[in-house]
Structure formats: structure tokens, C-alpha cells
Design a protein around this nucleic acid. Structure first.
Lengths: 337, 337
DNA sequence: AGGGAAGGCACAAACGATTGTGCAATGCCT
DNA sequence: AGGCATTGCACAATCGTTTGTGCCTTCCCT
């Protein structure tokens, strides 16, 4: 910018003001403005955002902290967030926490050190101190998908409870009474809510809930596989399974395949999360679809509005509805012979 | 840092040097070092990377420019890159170009304005001027997956030619002679190479190549769907299809489903790209697997080494091998009756 | 013509770090 | 005791912007 100023024979302050549209406020003549603008265009000048960030204490950057970008749910979120952010002039620093709390803390520090203006976080769920610390530093933060309800951090998520309730009820209405639940990360809010929905659906239909029907500990395919094996090994094996995640459902399918169990003839299956492959699986999977795009759009809008107005969102909680997508992985239970 | 310096009664220069491990070079006493370090630890101090970046002209940030993060190939790449980068102290600014050249240019400017130290990019492929411009600005850049071969920009990619050749040869060995090719973005190098491999395989088996057998224009499911419809509508419809991408293969499967065509009985299918769902599709899909993790690891290592040593990679081109993963989507062609 | 207002721009101090250099104080040698 | 190294630290410039303020003109009004 100094070079540019020298070239046009003006001071850097004039150049800066022209380029920032503050020419009128400082009585810069039309002629000078044109001069500056043309020179800037000709030299392809663009401001150094680092220096600008230092001076303004605003980096026009948002930190996106998610557990697993290779998971289609989060990669959809990331895509939408990135697009929305870029359209409003923000860059996204991506951190993948690998569902590891240690990594989450490190990544958070890395983001804070880089002075991001705001954060979009889908936290592991266990420890909340580091997240609170970020809030204490007055960095606007909105939680996505996973959230805390004993804090006042705004969030946008899915109605996980209702989604799981609907799915479970669907299985029950098909005649199933022994229904297994393949869970993900037990501490994460979405998982808790899904579990709650599952339990409530059973209760509402006078089906006693067996603790052993709930298996699993991570949102991973291998974990779903192991959990399914475990459930199907049990004496009174479930006739239907509800997988709390897309990867969990995959694991279940693989377990059934390996055991020669047919879906839905031998065991019915519903998976949380919808994705492009679901309709083409063997069999096409009945799923609980989340409004991924809406979640990401709402969350980014909330955050960016917050950044630009300086005021937090009017309402703290945003819960979007799921949709039960019926396909072929659920069959009526054959009556016992 | 100024506060910290005041608290311990020292100058900021001393604090800076201690924290950067340059104490010895400047004869800072052991005692002072301890004092500084303890105070820093107690106050949870960490340096402002923005200010540091301005002074050092190094932001410890890498720009990742990819066409579609919701595509499993790229999300795997992103995950691996992010992990590798974070382990070496670098943050990743993610930009999703949506396979749009306009967006690619804007995103590139956004990254350059933010003074990223280096770039990892998978370019659209058509225009190369903006990419060259970045190189001209002496920003280290390595291409991932997609590349240019008439430039001296280093890249790491897959042996797309051989992968497509192997897949096509596999179809031919199953007796197919009318083989359609569902392509992705025609200008992109991987697509060109795959097409070349396909053509060469046909030629090597004395099968004349029909131009009408090559359809498609984007790496998207809808495009694959339309292309498959078009091919299957033709008079002498192909008995086998080779999809140049995972999403393309999905589109083909959906097209077949809609037409009541069974895979592999009525038409055989091979798809480029492997992903967790492939073995569970109906039918399990025969694919050409790319070494995604290796590509991403090699590319990030090359770039970061470049950043730290100041010297570009020793060898410019890196081509990793594919693997043909046999499943159930290819069947021997039934002899004509 | 003198005075005040307005117009048009330049100066210089931040922002928070890094780093070459300078300046005391101490120690050692002869 | 005087001189020279060495030790231990502080000063201040710098990175590229933004922005409050100040200064010189020109103009208009009475």
C-alpha cells in the first residue's frame, strides 16, 4: 500500500480511506478517489489482512471445530458453512478434533491464538472448561449439532429426541418389541437425546427397556460392527436395531452380512442420518434425515450476525426437525410360530 | 505480552526471546528464563499469531483449495491434511470452490490476502492464470489430485491412467465389448487420464472406440444419472459402464434402478474411488481405490518441508498407484443367444 | 479586507510481536 | 588500577494497516 501511495503521490492514509469507502467522511476529492482506485485496480492491489487484522482486532476468520470431517454429516456442514462464510467475506479455519478431547483443546488454542473472530464448534461433549474459557475471552461461539444445556452458549441442533422416538415407534409399529440401540459417543448430547427418544418410545408402548439392548461407544463403523455382533450374540437377540449414526448403521450392515443375516428379513434396521448412498444400499436404508444444510446455514448466520452487530442471537436454542425416510430396511415382524 | 513483561519486571524483548527459545543466543540468565516461563504458564499466555505473522511474514497457515468437501474423496484428503498440518503447528484455511472457476479465483485471493504460507490446491483445471499468479508471488504451492503438466508446479496424484486401464481391462476380460464411460469434469487432469486409460485398454484389445460411449461433464450424481440414461437409451447400449467418479457411479446405479436394470446381470459397473459404503451397496461395487491417505500425507509433507526449508521438493511429480477392488458389480457377459 | 468555515490531504500513533544494537555492570587479567 | 571481555538486559525500529488530529488552502460572507 505504501508503494501504491508513493506511485500516486499521496499518503497511505488517503489510499486506505479511499479503499475502505471512507472517502466521503474525510473529504477526499472525487478526482483523487478515481486516481487511487484506478491505480489499485491496475496493480491488482489488495490489502494485507494480517496487518489489517492486527490493527482492527478483527481477522474476518471463523474457526470451525468438528469431530470428523470425513463423516458425511460434518462434511456437509463444513461445505455449507464455508460457502456461507465466504459469501460474507469470512475465511474458515478448519480443525478436525478426531473426537479426542486433548486434540480439541489444542485445536481451540490454535484457533484462539490466530485470533479468529468467532467459533462454530461441535464439541466432544465431556469436558466443557476449554469451551467456556473461549467464551470467557468474549469470542462469539455457537455450537452446532452437539451442545450443552446447562450453559448459556447458543446452539443449533436437530430434534434428536423426536427423530429417535419416531424411528423407534416405526419399528414398534412393525411389530418389533426387542429393539437394540447402537449408540455413538455416550457423552454427546445428540446421542443422549436419541437414547432418550428411543427409551421413551419403548415406554410409551409398554415395552420394558433392557439396559443390555444399548451398546456402543463411538460414532464409528467398527464400533457399530462390534456392538451389533454383541447384540446379535445375546440370548434373546433383538429383531430390530436402531443405529444412532450413519457409520453405526454401516457397521450393523457389515455385521449382518458377515453373519449371513438378511436385512430386513432377519433383522430390521434404521439409521440416524441421511446420505446420498442410503437409497442404494443393500437394502435401501430407512433413515432419520437431519436438515444438514439448514443447521449449517442457521448456525453460520447466527454467528456472523453476532460478529457484525456485536450482539448475541436473540434466541439461544434452535432445534430443527428430522424426517423419517422410509425405505426397505424395516419389515413387519413375522409372528412367532 | 506487554502485560506479562510488566508483571515480571522485564522488557518485552526478553520475554519474547525466552518464549522463542532464543534465550541462549542473547545471554538471558537461567533465573530470568524460569521467571518468564513460569509467569507465562501461570497466566496461560500464548502469543498473538497475527502480530507474529505480521512481523515474521509467516502465518503458519496453509490454504486448502478443493472442489467439493462433501465429496468423500476430498473430505478424506482434508482430514489427513488437517491432521498432518496441525501436528506441525500449521492451521488450515479451507476453501470449497464448488468446481466453479469464478469461486476458485475469489477463494485464492481470499487466501493470498490472508497471507497463507503455502497452498494445497486441487484446481478446476480450465484456467491456470490465477494459479500461476500465486506461484509468481512466490507462495509455495503443491497440487493435489488434479494437476497441470505443462507447468513446473509440483503435484501428487493417482495413476489415473493405469487405474482406468485396469478397470476397463477387467470389464473386457469379462467379455464386455460395448463399454460406456461416464466422465467427470472433462478439463480436469484426472478425468483426462482416466479417459485415456479407458481408450487405451479398448484399443489394446482391438475394440474400436465410439465417441458416443463417452458421456458426462461433472463429478456429480445427477450428471452420472443423466449420462447413464443417455447411454442406456442408445441403440446398441453398452453392456458395461465405467464411472470416472464415485458420485458418477451412484448416478448410474440410480439410473439402473429406475429403469429396472439389474447390476451386474443386465449391466456391469465399475466406479473410480473407494469409500466405506461401497461394499454395502446393492450390489457391492467393484471400484478403483485411490491411496487417499498417502496422497494427502505426501502432499502436506512436501509443502511443509518446502515452507520450513525454503526449498521446493526434489522431485516434482508423484504418482501413486491405484488398486482394483473386486466386488459384485461386474459379471461375465452372457453370450448372445 | 478580515475572519470563519469548509475542503483536501499528511502526520504519526497505535495493533503485538521480533530482533539488531546499545549500554551498564561485573569479572578477569596484567 | 586500568582496560577489555563478558554478562544481562533494555531500546527502538519494523511488519502493513487504520484513524484521530492537525495543517495549509481556498472560498464565502459581511
Amino acid at each position: 500500500m505504501k508503494d501504491l501511495a508513493r506511485d500516486v503521490g499521496l499518503s497511505v492514509s488517503v489510499v486506505s480511506r479511499v479503499l475502505n469507502g471512507k472517502a466521503a467522511d474525510y473529504r477526499i476529492s472525487e478526482q483523487t478517489q478515481r486516481l487511487v482506485r484506478e491505480a489499485a485496480a491496475k496493480r491488482g492491489f489488495s490489502v494485507n489482512q494480517i496487518a489489517r487484522g492486527l490493527r482492527l482486532q478483527k481477522t474476518k476468520t471463523i474457526g470451525l471445530l468438528i469431530p470428523d470431517i470425513s463423516n458425511s454429516f460434518f462434511s456437509s456442514i463444513a461445505r455449507t458453512v464455508e460457502n456461507a462464510a465466504r459469501r460474507r467475506g469470512y475465511a474458515i479455519i478448519l480443525c478436525d478434533t478426531e473426537d479426542d478431547e486433548q486434540v480439541e483443546q489444542e485445536a481451540l488454542s490454535l484457533l484462539l491464538d490466530r485470533a479468529v473472530d468467532g467459533l462454530l464448534v461441535s464439541p466432544i461433549g465431556k469436558g466443557t472448561e476449554h469451551i467456556e474459557a473461549a467464551c470467557a475471552r468474549k469470542v462469539p461461539l455457537v455450537l452446532v449439532d452437539r451442545f450443552f444445556d446447562n450453559h448459556d452458549i447458543p446452539y443449533v441442533t436437530t430434534n434428536n429426541y423426536q427423530g429417535a422416538y419416531d424411528g423407534t415407534a416405526h419399528l414398534i409399529s412393525a411389530g418389533h418389541r426387542r429393539i437394540g440401540f447402537i449408540q455413538g459417543l455416550p457423552d454427546s448430547k445428540p446421542n443422549c437425546e436419541r437414547l432418550r427418544g428411543y427409551r421413551q418410545a419403548l415406554k410409551d408402548h409398554q415395552i420394558p427397556v433392557e439396559d443390555s439392548w444399548v451398546q456402543g461407544s463411538k460414532f464409528e463403523e467398527a464400533d457399530g460392527y462390534a456392538s451389533a455382533q454383541c447384540l446379535l450374540d445375546s440370548l434373546a437377540a433383538p429383531t430390530a436395531l436402531f443405529a444412532s449414526s450413519s457409520l453405526g448403521a454401516l457397521g450393523v450392515m457389515r455385521a449382518c452380512l458377515d453373519r449371513g443375516l438378511r436385512i430386513p428379513d432377519d433383522v430390521s434396521l434404521i439409521g440416524f442420518d441421511e446420505y446420498p448412498y442410503a437409497p442404494l444400499l443393500a437394502p435401501p436404508l430407512t433413515t432419520i434425515a437431519q436438515p444438514t444444510r439448514e443447521i449449517a446455514e442457521l448456525a453460520s448466520r447466527m454467528l456472523i450476525d453476532w460478529l457484525e452487530t456485536g450482539e448475541g442471537p436473540a434466541s439461544r436454542v434452535h432445534v430443527l426437525e428430522t424426517e423419517l425416510v422410509l425405505r426397505d430396511s424395516v419389515a413387519p415382524l413375522a409372528p412367532p410360530i
